[in-house]
């Protein structure tokens, strides 16, 4: 009885692992495959052609650059805007905080495609389509609520007594800020940076409504290649894209509570 249960559990976990890993594995295999037709477990020939293609024709380098520029802009703007707002929410008495939270979280609760139409409409008029700033601004809509949420929960956790103690000991305002507050909130800010980065880096819906030939990001490129190219090349590009995502994954696991990625739904 005990053994059957153990075996059951192990089989389940094994199946689950296969369920999750295989799609990635098959992408990597496809990206090296040549002549993989009909019913075969593995391709007949192996080749580097598709990677060659990804860099030479699909311009993965330039696109990676675009993605990083846009992500950097989105992180910068979200943090800059989010810091003061998060501080106010966390440390100042505000009537109706619940409602405020709901308003801030609303962009994440309503499907992005709905307001993406409006954003692209407005951006067309402002000539923000196909600019890094424009795409990054669109991403801010999704990144900002996240940033505010994480930052405000960090600021809430800040112990007022520590700040007061510093002041009592005669530290100036700046000194308190740099030597007491900053080290305490740094992990929170880093968490916010990492999560806004993932949001922006993976964002597709808002990007496809605001991108142009000069601001193709990685997800959009993947879409274009899947929809209008070869799946072998798409797999090669995807395999390249997996690397930064895996780095982020490891960073999240090592340094942060993964639960934070889904963000507490305090507003509800």
């Amino acid at each position: 009885m005990r053994y059957t249960k153990k075996i059951l559990i192990i089989t389940f976990l094994l199946c689950f692992a296969i369920f999750i890993i295989s799609p990635f594995l098959i992408i990597v295999v496809t990206s090296f495959a040549k002549g993989w037709f009909g019913k075969q477990w593995l391709p007949q020939e192996w080749t580097f052609d598709w990677y060659h293609w990804a860099f030479q024709v699909a311009n993965v380098g330039a696109i990676l650059k675009n993605s990083l520029i846009i992500a950097a802009l989105a992180i910068g703007m979200s943090l800059f805007i989010g810091l003061s707002t998060a501080w106010a929410i966390a440390r100042r008495p505000i009537p109706g905080k619940e409602i405020l939270y709901s308003i801030i979280l609303l962009p994440r609760m309503i499907p992005p495609i709905t307001y993406a139409l409006g954003i692209s409409n407005i951006f067309y008029r402002l000539n923000l389509i196909d600019t890094h700033l424009g795409v990054a601004l669109a991403h801010v809509t999704l990144c900002l609520p996240f940033g505010i949420l994480i930052l405000s929960s960090t600021f809430e956790g800040l112990d007022q007594r520590l700040i007061e103690a510093a002041e009592v000991c005669g530290a100036s305002r700046w000194r308190t800020f740099f030597h007491v507050i900053l080290p305490l909130v740094m992990p929170g800010i880093l968490a916010a940076i990492i999560f806004t980065f993932t949001t922006s880096y993976n964002e597709f819906t808002l990007t496809i409504m605001t991108y142009g030939p000069h601001t193709v990001t990685l997800p959009v490129k993947t879409y274009l290649v899947i929809g209008d190219g070869y799946w072998e090349v798409a797999s090669a590009i995807s395999s390249i894209l997996l690397i930064p995502s895996l780095i982020v994954l490891i960073v999240i696991l090592r340094s942060l509570k993964p639960e934070k990625i889904v963000g507490g739904f305090k507003g509800i």
Binding site: G61, K65, L68, I69, A72, M186, P187, L190, I193, I194, I247, V251, R254, S255
Partner: peptide
């Protein structure tokens, strides 16, 4: 320690960015 690692990765990405430019 963990903080250092994150900063390290951030630095790397900034360097990559600058090289691209």
């Amino acid at each position: 320690m963990k903080l250092v690692r994150i900063l390290y990765i951030l630095m790397l990405s900034i360097i990559m960015f600058v090289t691209f430019r």
